[in-house]
Design a protein around this nucleic acid. Structure first.
Lengths: 259, 259
DNA sequence: GAGTGGTCTAGACCACCTT
DNA sequence: AGGTGGTCTAGACCACTCA
């Protein structure tokens, strides 16, 4: 059996210069990706193929693959194989026009699946954000979003029913911002965005079909209308290799720090 | 020998309910951190202590620890041990007043080490950014910055000598923005910030004293003055557990997409 | 049903940090 | 000098995917 992509043509050797073996293998695979011998979306040889071709223990192979995954160069599909990562999408919280429009604008194919719509009592944290009483009813929407057929984020959106009564009866597979605008006349005047690297675990990992512990990016977006009411509170868990954030802004003069 | 922090008091067992062992151990350690039995900065028991106390193979222990590292809950000091991560610092590109001021404002102790100052010929990419001829001389500064004694980022700053002649003769261990302002009258009117999750490898990993492949966040900041000239081009490699990004902005109306 | 990655074991030797 | 994490081996069995 011969791999579709020949990773070690003509008994090509890994450089033995210095450093650990797994980094040498990492470099070898990374090079193959850079020069285009391995294209985005294509599958790498199996771990056991590497094992026999490179003569390295499987644990070491997996170390190299995990390193490449951490760098965002490759990703895994559970019990299927390792694949070269497609390019990341650029996310601009300032020009945010909705995921669907955004992804399409960059020449990719977006898709959305609504995982769950529910009414939930406000937790203490959410009550504080929405300025409602703890335990008050809030809409909660969980969605998964895809680019070119690959799941790239899961999100949990919270909306105050007072602003958008009967919201859950609409189809939420498109742009929520559009629905809020066209159906309820609610527009976003201000966005507060928090971002931090995280790991995708448990629910998020399961929904994205990724290995628990895969690195990710958590983007929390709080949208306000012109009168300062919270329109939407959105927690997005992104695959780390699928997103780049771009912000272009004029510098605000240092004033009294807000509290 | 008894560990300073008793992780398994009274023969406490790991939950055997379901899922892999390494996640059970992860949960166990995470719980100890949450309830404050393990405080930020404190050292975890050694891998071999876990091995004997929990009766699990060392490879499995390391899997649990790596997971916690990916989540940002713990970090390692090379060949010294595993430690509980301190809280992250909040970074606001809009209110950027310099790392030193910023960190101090959040009650932490900042420090900066200049690793290298040099004059380098502009690469094609840099020439394009600064609108100079390829090969033209540019200042390059490499610095490492610390919070409470822990290295959290390394950066590579590029400045056009035309805007700040003789810049390298100044001490660069403080705020570069301050120097540009007070010594050269250059102020920043606009910032372009790009962020993406990455892995810390090679130089960056070495400078931060982290394991190659540790997750990180790359922040690229391009600063412009009022006339649109590039003042500073800064690539910052952050430890992923040390930073949160916060942006608060008014939504820009959709206009012609810039190209 | 064959092949894949996911998990786990029980060792080993090394480079380096710490005291 | 002793202990630590870093690397690596050579197996094993399992759950799951895919054809």
């Amino acid at each position: 059996m011969r791999s579709a992509i020949e990773m070690f043509p003509r008994q090509e050797k890994l450089s033995e210069a210095d450093g650990p073996q797994y980094l040498a293998l990492r470099d070898h695979i990374a090079l193959n990706i850079e020069i285009g011998r391995l294209l985005p979306g294509s599958r790498l040889p199996s771990e056991r193929q590497f094992q026999s071709e490179a003569g390295i223990a499987r644990g070491t192979i997996r170390q190299a693959l995990s390193q490449l995954e951490a760098e965002g160069l490759i990703y895994r599909r559970d019990r299927s194989g390792w694949y070269v990562s497609p390019p990341a999408i650029t996310y601009d919280p300032m020009r945010w026009a909705g995921f669907m429009a955004y992804v399409a604008e960059q020449g990719r194919v977006p898709a959305t699946t609504t995982l769950e719509k529910s009414i939930r009592p406000a937790t203490a944290a959410l009550a504080d954000i929405f300025r409602v009483a703890p335990g008050a009813s809030l809409y909660e929407i969980r969605r998964r979003r895809m680019i070119d057929g690959r799941s790239v984020l899961v999100e949990r959106i919270t909306v105050d029913p007072a602003l958008a009564p009967d919201l859950l009866s609409h189809s939420l597979d498109g742009s929520l911002t559009d629905i809020l605008k066209s159906e309820y006349g609610v527009t976003v005047a201000r966005n507060r965005v928090d971002m931090r690297p995280c790991a995708l675990v448990r629910d998020a990992a399961e929904a994205l079909g990724v290995h628990s512990g895969t690195p990710g990016l958590l983007v929390v977006r709080t949208s306000f209308d012109a009168s300062g009411r919270v329109v939407e509170y959105d927690q997005e868990y992104w695959r780390h290799d699928a997103i780049r954030v771009h912000v272009d802004l004029t510098v605000r003069e240092e004033t009294i720090p807000p509290k």
